[in-house]
Amino acid sequence: MGRLDVARLRRKKRKALRHPIAHGILLVLAATALAPICILLLNSLRSNEAISGGPIGFPSSPVWSNYTSAWDTAGYSVAFRNSLIVSASTVLGVCTFAGLAAYGLARIRVRGSGLVLVYLLIGLTLPAQLFLTPLFIAWVHLHLNNNLFGLIFIYWGIYMPFGTLLLRSFFISLSPEFEEAARVDGCNELQVFRRVVVPMAWPALVSLAVIIAVWSWNEFFFAVTFLTNPNVQTVAVRYYRFLGIYSSNLADISVGGLVVCCVPVTFFILLQRRFVQGLAAGGLKG
């Protein structure tokens, strides 16, 4: 055996050894990442007595009625509908307004657009707490607390900077030739935007939509402040209130946890490439 073969053999051996260790560590990390969710899944099928007897365990006989009781009596059906309304409206609003604003910022040369960019960056970094107090007082006086639109309006405001910066960086990377061609063919600006820009920007728009959907679904700080009436609460707030009121009803709490995380986790697993690309682009360039 020549020296080269020995070296190759040694490298092969090292590779074969290194991989199991890497896989082992990663498997442990992956198990830690999934463990609490698995515990929720298992507990959602156990009776309250069984859970208080031991927090971790397999359901001896699955109690499917936990799901119906959480859905109906614990009010998750109403909360689920509210969350759907809030998330869908937030996504639609942010995509529309951020899309128009980003297109303007990327294409139209006007004085002051640099200032708008700085303003958006400041908006991205300012802590939400800074405007909570005045917002809270204003919303109480305008009767916009305990109102889904009041919350949606806030979400539009807080997610706009991220959305605009993300879409702007994408629009800049597009070639303006298509838009010019459409203009020559007699389209007005809005038609150019709708017929040419939006179809080309579709991947970025989908990324933004997925990210905003997950964020607004999971948002807690503003939701818990502004939604105290059970009829308008989103699933996140509903779950939080439920933790406090029915702390002994562990089965319903587990089901509630699953109801809250089912939508974002499904969204992520189905559209993970878009999700990660959008976060990386918007975050790293923003």
């Binding site: 515990i39 997950v214 679904w217 807690f220 996140a236 995380c261 974002p264 992520f268 993970q272």
Partner: peptide, 24 residues
């Protein structure tokens, strides 16, 4: 597989993560 699994906790709402760990 790993990058998907490791990212799943990030998409779970803070209430559920906090609530579940507080209970554990």
């Amino acid at each position: 597989f790993y990058r998907t699994i490791l990212y799943v906790p990030v998409t779970v709402a803070s209430v559920v993560v906090g609530g579940t760990w507080a209970w554990l």
